[in-house]
Simulated assay, not measured.
Amino acid sequence: MLRDVDTVQVVATGTLIFLLIGAAGVGVLVLALLGTELLHFGHAHVDGPASTEAVAGFAGAFGFGGAIANELLGARTPGMIAGAAAAGLVAAVPTAWLASRLSRAARNMRTDPTPTRNDLVGALGLVVTPVPVDGYGEVRVRVAGQPVKLNARADQPIPIGAQVFVVQALSETSVHVETY
């Protein structure tokens, strides 16, 4: 009877160790996603032989894969625990490779440049608040595919609903418009 209790403790201990390794991997991944530069030494923009995401993926898959294999094998001997570790390694290597590829793809993803006030010139829009001669009204224009509401001035009064053309960007949030 006492021998059965010892067997349960060995399986639970092996599984617990694998689960702790997996949890550490998930913790490193969370820190990497938050941008803490945890495993960067020296210059911050130089990756070492393995990215933080790859290390996190490896540790997480190794730990959780090893825990699953340990439970399925009912590992009681060091040889069976080594088999569970080998199964964890089989899960960890492709996971680390995939994490490395995905993180590199995300870092190197091309994006459109941030629109500036120069991008406002030439935009077509619609008056949403009448534009008086001596003050500001409001227009809605599309910049880089996004609707933007701006303060607008004009040489002549422009009623609500009129279609306008941006002639000049007075600031980041105000423009000079004409009807078209």
Rank of each mutant, 00 (worst) to 15 (best):
M1Y: 06
L2G: 08
D4G: 00
V5Q: 10
D6F: 12
T7L: 11
V8L: 12
V8P: 02
V8F: 11
V8M: 11
Q9P: 02
Q9H: 13
V11H: 04
A12K: 09
G14Y: 02
T15G: 11
T15L: 10
F18W: 09
L20V: 15
I21A: 05
A23L: 15
A24F: 13
G25F: 03
G27S: 12
G27W: 00
V28M: 04
L29E: 09
L29D: 04
L33W: 04
L34Q: 03
G35H: 00
L39P: 07
H40E: 12
H40D: 13
F41P: 08
G42S: 05
G42H: 05
H43A: 13
V46Y: 06
V46S: 00
D47S: 14
D47C: 06
G48N: 11
A50H: 06
S51T: 15
S51R: 08
T52H: 06
T52S: 11
T52M: 10
E53C: 05
A54W: 08
A54Y: 07
V55M: 00
F58C: 01
F58D: 07
A61C: 04
A61L: 09
A61P: 01
G63I: 01
G65R: 05
A67L: 06
A67E: 04
I68E: 03
I68M: 14
A69H: 09
A69E: 05
A69F: 04
N70M: 14
N70L: 10
A75W: 05
R76N: 15
G79Y: 11
A82Q: 08
G83T: 10
A84G: 09
A86W: 09
A86E: 05
A87N: 00
A87R: 07
G88P: 04
G88H: 07
V90T: 08
T95A: 15
T95P: 03
W97D: 08
W97M: 13
L98V: 12
A99T: 02
A99C: 12
R101F: 01
L102M: 14
S103P: 06
S103C: 03
S103K: 04
R104E: 13
R107Y: 07
N108G: 08
T111N: 11
D112R: 15
P113E: 01
T114M: 12
P115Y: 05
R117H: 13
R117T: 10
N118Y: 12
V121I: 15
G122K: 08
L124D: 14
L126R: 14
V128L: 11
T129W: 04
V131G: 02
P132D: 00
D134F: 01
D134L: 07
D134Y: 02
G135D: 12
Y136A: 12
G137M: 03
E138F: 03
E138K: 14
V139F: 08
R140A: 06
V143C: 07
G145K: 07
Q146I: 10
P147A: 04
P147V: 09
P147F: 04
V148D: 00
V148M: 10
N151G: 13
R153T: 07
R153C: 09
D155W: 05
Q156S: 13
I158Q: 00
P159K: 03
I160A: 12
I160S: 13
I160W: 05
G161I: 03
V164C: 07
V164F: 02
V166G: 07
V167S: 04
V167W: 02
A169N: 01
S174W: 00
V175C: 00
V177N: 05
E178I: 03
T179M: 10
T179F: 01
Y180L: 15
